[in-house]
Amino acid sequence: MKKQRFSETQIASILKQYEGGREALELCREHGISKATLYNWRKKYAGMDSSHIRELKALQDENRRLKQMYAELMLDHQLAKHIISKKVIKPCQKRELAESVIKEQSISVGRACRVIHLQRSLWYYRSGKDDSAIIDKLSSLADRFPTRGFDKYYAIIRIEGNKWARSRVLRVYREMNLCRRRRHKKRLPSRIKEPLQKQLLPNQSYSMDFMSDSLVSGRKLRIFKVVDDCTRESLAVWCDYSITGQKVTEILEQITAERGKPLQVRVDNGPEFTGKAFSEWCSDRSIIIKYIQPGKPMQNAYIERLNRTYREDVLDAYLFESLEELRILSDEWQHGYNHLMPHQSLNNQTPAKAHQSACRGHFI
């Protein structure tokens, strides 16, 4: 049966007839309604005339509309809280944010655009510009001239005959984040791989290296160490907050005053060893500097083995409150290592004993 919609006047008239004494079954048959509908009308609108019923229905509609409006505002508020921490300025950024909100919250495009304040036309707009040639050109220039800026790049582009507008090239330049200066690699001369050679006499070759650690307070420390490649003696373990190339030469000056100068030293490519102070000190004393290849610490294996022992016995075994505490422990460790610790490559002799044997010509 086709559903009918009764007006307020009709409902009031039916209820008035029912209250006047007419049978409910007769009224229901006459107007085509069920007895449940009649009793619901009586429960809601008993004692009301048509104007009162009209006002009640209007209030119910208004209440339903306000509830729907409140629900929509609450949803918009939740979306706003979700995106308020994200800084968006450009329309392309707003479009990306709208895409993520639609995907995560499963809302309509219209609602997302309204909350983010993005025009619907910008949502559907797709640029037809092709900047691939400019991107390739700027990438090649940045790789070739990493320390130059936009003005220099654009001048080169114009010299080569490209007619791209400056504003367009600048826009692509900024989108590629090339305005941030790139850190380029330090250029080192090519290092020749030279295998470790077993030294037959002491004071022929020294190996040197740095280690890092920190105090309990978090302050950084550096440790400079020197080893004799022949006898494996630890010649220096100097700890300080900062060790420059000048300080390295002072420590080596003390060692050479006691033992004599070596023929060569093996070092890595750190700034202390490639600097002017160390290079000139070695050159003035005719000491050959053997640089290992960058990233190849195994080419300086003698000092790396000493580093491991020192770290296990001292750095990993104690917590240091002060620099002086580390220096005392390092001196005690160096004395024990040289005079008490046998070395397998020295036929289980201590480094000090091996030095004495080599000086007498009996070192194997």
Rank of each mutant, 00 (worst) to 15 (best):
H77W: 10
V88S: 03
Q93Y: 07
R64M: 00
K43P: 02
S51H: 07
D49F: 02
I84L: 14
S106V: 03
R42T: 02
D76S: 15
E62D: 07
K86P: 00
E30D: 15
K90H: 12
E30F: 14
R111H: 03
E26R: 09
M69F: 03
A46D: 15
M74V: 05
C92D: 12
Q60I: 01
K43H: 14
S50L: 00
K87P: 08
I83K: 04
M74G: 02
C28E: 11
V115S: 07
Q78D: 13
G110L: 05
S100T: 14
C28W: 08
A80W: 15
K86R: 10
D76F: 01
K87T: 15
I89S: 10
E55S: 01
S100A: 10
G47M: 04
K90R: 11
I33T: 04
Q93M: 07
K44P: 00
A46H: 14
I116E: 11
H52V: 01
D61N: 07
L73W: 07
E55R: 03
Q68N: 06
V115P: 07
K90P: 00
S50Q: 03
A24F: 03
S34H: 06
H31P: 08
L73R: 13
A58W: 05
A24N: 09
A46N: 14
K57F: 02
D61W: 01
V109W: 04
R64A: 02
M69D: 07
W41C: 05
R65T: 08
M74K: 08
G47A: 07
A36V: 02
H77C: 06
L38E: 00
R95V: 12
I84T: 15
L56Q: 14
E96N: 11
E104C: 08
K103D: 12
D61E: 14
A36S: 14
G110Y: 10
K86S: 09
A58Y: 07
K103C: 02
K67F: 06
H82S: 11
Q68S: 02
Q68L: 03
Y45L: 10
K86F: 06
K90C: 03
V101G: 06
C92I: 10
R114C: 15
S106F: 07
E104V: 13
C113R: 09
L59D: 15
C113W: 08
H77F: 04
I53R: 06
R29K: 11
P91W: 04
N40S: 06
M74D: 10
K57M: 08
A58P: 04
V109Q: 15
C113D: 09
D76V: 01
L79K: 04
E26M: 12
L66Y: 02
Q60K: 04
H77A: 08
K90F: 08
K86Y: 05
